[in-house]
Simulated assay, not measured.
Amino acid sequence: MTFAFGLRLGAVLVFSCLATAASAAAKLTPDAIAAAKPDGTKIAGEDPSPLGVRLQVLLDRAHFSPGEIDGRLGENAKKALQAYAEAQQLPGSDTVSDELWAKLTADSRPVLTQYKLTAKDVDGPFLKKLPAKMEEMKGLKQLGYTSVQEALAEKFHMSKQLLATLNPGQRFKRAGEMITVVDTAPAAAETMKAQRIEVDKTRQTVKAFGDNNQLIAFYPATVGSEEKPSPSGTLKVTEVSPNPTYGYNPDYKFKGVKSRKRFEIKPGPNNPVGNMWIGLSAEGYGIHGTPEPDRVSKAESHGCVRLTNWDAQRIAGLVGKGTPVDFIDAPR
């Protein structure tokens, strides 16, 4: 009797979760996203919303990254909004003021666009399965994407779930088919250069400052780990290396890695440091990408500074050899 009741209860819970997910997806239509506007209340909530998608895209375009665009107005979106307000010299809060919204929507282009799948998109090659352990990765020839959906989601800075929601019934199998994606392309060619980078170890953020100490870009990050804490003070950029080979050093004794010998993992977006490595002037430390964009600022980074792959690429375009990187222990 108890076992049967448990099955019934489980079925009800699963049905409830599916109904909630379906309801959220139903709201995320192109028309609803295009028309979404703030209503003066605090931005909050773990459920995707049309406003969440629009706000995240607008912030991403302005170089104030919310991390993975998923429509959820969580901590990363709040951090990006606060930083954008700071850059615009406006009061920071969890609400979107009329003045702040006017600044963001000065880029009046639609936040969604149509994209035609190419043969390169759908043909791969793709990994059949990404190993869970580092030791199992070292024998692979490359650490590529595991699916068309993963590759497209990263290309457009969005979650796989949002990609699926915007394209109901689409299997992403045929070149030439049109799909709906978010449009994060900047309004103009990017010519900015950072005079310094600031890594806030407490807030788990990265800021880029230009001339006259102007805040020009922001990124949520994962900074450091218990087993290998991030450094303090000022380091400098020593290298910018796209598609890096990852070298494991057994001296660090990372959790889950049993090997006592050095080994290498081939390049690719699913490499442990993603597809970008920005080396710093302390051995073994750097700013890098990740194969898990949804976990940025939510999981440890073995002492380095982890960003989404696309944000790591953007920072790489802002810095050069010698750019100072300040590690801040407490909020300024």
Results as ranks from 00 to 15, higher is better:
residue 292 E to W: 13
residue 312 A to K: 04
residue 227 E to P: 07
residue 207 K to I: 00
residue 236 K to N: 15
residue 66 P to V: 00
residue 324 P to T: 05
residue 49 S to E: 05
residue 289 G to T: 01
residue 68 E to R: 07
residue 25 A to P: 12
residue 118 T to W: 15
residue 307 L to A: 15
residue 121 D to R: 02
residue 6 G to R: 09
residue 87 A to E: 06
residue 174 R to M: 12
residue 66 P to K: 06
residue 60 D to N: 09
residue 262 R to P: 12
residue 25 A to V: 08
residue 156 F to C: 00
residue 102 A to P: 11
residue 272 P to A: 14
residue 250 P to V: 11
residue 68 E to V: 01
residue 192 M to F: 02
residue 104 L to P: 04
residue 294 D to G: 14
residue 83 A to S: 09
residue 155 K to A: 06
residue 133 K to I: 05
residue 99 E to Q: 11
residue 168 P to D: 04
residue 65 S to G: 03
residue 100 L to I: 03
residue 214 Q to T: 09
residue 114 Q to N: 15
residue 231 P to E: 13
residue 207 K to M: 02
residue 292 E to A: 09
residue 142 Q to I: 10
residue 87 A to L: 07
residue 179 I to S: 08
residue 230 S to Y: 14
residue 310 W to T: 11
residue 114 Q to M: 14
residue 319 V to N: 15
residue 316 A to G: 13
residue 312 A to Q: 13
residue 174 R to C: 05
residue 170 Q to F: 12
residue 63 H to R: 04
residue 75 E to G: 05
residue 151 A to K: 05
residue 52 G to W: 00
residue 7 L to F: 09
residue 13 L to C: 10
residue 10 G to N: 09
residue 294 D to A: 11
residue 39 D to R: 11
residue 230 S to P: 01
residue 316 A to L: 06
residue 264 E to K: 14
residue 4 A to V: 01
residue 302 H to R: 11
residue 13 L to G: 13
residue 227 E to A: 07
residue 107 D to F: 05
residue 252 Y to R: 15
residue 98 D to N: 04
residue 58 L to S: 05
residue 151 A to Y: 12
residue 116 K to V: 10
residue 92 G to D: 06
residue 39 D to N: 15
residue 212 N to Y: 09
residue 34 A to W: 07
residue 90 L to H: 05
residue 245 T to M: 10
residue 268 G to N: 10
